[in-house]
Amino acid sequence: MGFFSKFRKKSPWILHYNTGGCNGCDIEILATLAPKYDIERFGALNRGNPKQADILLVTGPVTKNCRDVLRRLYLEMPEPKVVVAMGACGHGGGVFRHLYNVENGVDNIIPVDVWIPGCAPNPRALIDGIVEAIKIWEKKSKDKEYMKNHSKEMIKNLGVNDD
């Protein structure tokens, strides 16, 4: 579907999930929806529905209580999909690294494509991250990654063998 891929980069629908961060990133996501930054210029919408989303925006270190929800959201999204980890906590836990109820970063649970650094990232950084995610998303779609099955290693990491 080469023709359709042309339009791909203009309509990223976002699913946002906070996995135990401090709200700072979530405030910035709300600010990005608002008039000054207005992410809808790029066609991005906050859908809040995994089944219709293309980009999973994860904020925060993954707490043990949130882990399963995050995994389920990732699996519910239809391919092609991109995961964006936002904020320092997403990168290996940040200030919360090695606390007893924290899983140290998003990539311990699901594969991550784009990292947005900062505590909390500026909305401009967030927009940049989304643009970066769109590039990866396009590449994934061209490679028809969604036609392939997940690799065995990834299935093991996601822990869906017995689901």
């Binding site: 359709f4 309509s11 008039p35």
Partner: peptide, 28 residues
């Protein structure tokens, strides 16, 4: 709607971009 909310808003063709994107998603 976007202009009424003092935003820029998406391009005019946005619904069609959405349309073609959805066509390319994995059917579940």
């Amino acid at each position: 709607r976007a202009r009424m909310q003092s935003r820029m808003g998406p391009p005019l063709m946005q619904p069609f971009y959405d349309f073609f994107k959805l066509m390319d998603k994995r059917p579940i």
